[in-house]
Nucleic acid binder design. Sequence first.
DNA 1: CGAACATTTGAAGCGCGTCAAAGCCGGTGG
DNA 2: CCACCGGCTTTGACGCGCTTCAAATGTTCG
Lengths: 251, 251
Amino acid sequence: MVRRLGNYSRLASDEEAVIRQMLMLPVRFAPARRDLIAQGAPPRAVFLIVSGWACQFKTLEDGRRQIVGFMLPGDTCDMNNLVLTRMDHSIGAVTDVRYMEVPGEALQRVAMNYPRIGRAFWWQMLVSISTQREWTTNLGQRNALERLGSLLCELALRLQAVGLAGGESYDLPLTQTDLADATGLTSVHVNRTLQQMRTSGLISLSGRVLRIPNFAMLEEASLFTADYLHTGQRDGRRGKDPFEASASSIW
Amino acid sequence: MVRRLGNYSRLASDEEAVIRQMLMLPVRFAPARRDLIAQGAPPRAVFLIVSGWACQFKTLEDGRRQIVGFMLPGDTCDMNNLVLTRMDHSIGAVTDVRYMEVPGEALQRVAMNYPRIGRAFWWQMLVSISTQREWTTNLGQRNALERLGSLLCELALRLQAVGLAGGESYDLPLTQTDLADATGLTSVHVNRTLQQMRTSGLISLSGRVLRIPNFAMLEEASLFTADYLHTGQRDGRRGKDPFEASASSIW
DNA sequence: CGAACATTTGAAGCGCGTCAAAGCCGGTGG
DNA sequence: CCACCGGCTTTGACGCGCTTCAAATGTTCG
């Protein structure tokens, strides 16, 4: 689960041990659709997703809702919690979620004492900013098909990075309403656009299984490039999954 | 200029001195519309804006452009540069810009040795994530008037935080095309929407001077809330500018 | 004074939203 | 095992917000 960090900075075994040590924490549970923490609440810790999907979202006064990011297993929320005094967004469970609440001090201490780990935290935080910028661009410049396509590409790569997407398909537990809230569209239009993507062979989606028969084709149709995920290539390590071959075209 | 940091964490005079020391760097210059650094380039340092406005933007393959944030005097870009290997966005000068390139190592060293300063950096970074989330929401959920209104509110508060907006007006060097690229609209529609905002008395804008006669009214019309800027209230210090009175209603 | 650029205006069209109703489940209880 | 229910998906008709294209009108600055 916390191989996420290993993705960013190669960790020695003692460093891994320290992390595992830090994570000797009770595993909490939230059923689907329950909030882990709500906008406006005082933050209490850093959330680490153990299993299931969660999402970060903001709510406007009149009820409109924007999902600003998804949290997959191994992801942590930003460290908002260590410094700021109020949550400016909520974190909600998409599916049943098992998670931990890691005390800020523990994180800070470990990050201080183990520079490589600290560096991994930094990396993670920068990637999350970068991703947020990409979402901004997604909503500002892309049309419905491109938005959905880009989102599905991002999820594919992120899931695969934690071993939850093999081959060319993955489990997509989002409803069309979730997709709508994430892409700034209506669920009706998401539905129609997904159908269009199906008939043009970009994806197949039934039940909760999404299949992307030709990743490169979807990337192109969506104007997706994976650079913003900064899937580290600094030390020459790359995955060998079929997915990645095309995703890494720009590197 | 770097009272920005002081906004986040009250700094002792020796800490201020250290920062000033670190900033004994040549002041560089970029004319309006020139890029400070381009997407794809290897990052070289952290940019600190001394005077003028810059913007961060992403460009899609087909030329569409999304401004993902503005950098005002006193702002630094994120520390992308210390960790990641490629810029995933460009930084461009909106007006003539004077700026510095602060070496990553210097920043790191200072942040390590002076915890309060380090904390201020953290704060700044978290605020920038938070702002990016707000922009995502802006583009995803708000209509043209609300998007423009929210942007103008944000700029008002940020300018005022560095002493560049007094009373109820400020200098807005953005063209309508810039506003369009930032809000995901076309410049034509920006134009029409601005007119509507003028006739309804929300703003007056001529030349480069923007006036917001009634900040609270604009906030309400735009569904703007300033919480995401996290203008620290942790130690009871608040500004006393007329602007702020209304902006802080939710606190 | 004239070129380049920013703002403004008009007319026409399309992408996406809205509203509403109809299928399609999976789950629950009798 | 079936009846029923609530939530998700799908479909249709219609309308509006915003885009597109094009041209006119400032405005700035060499």
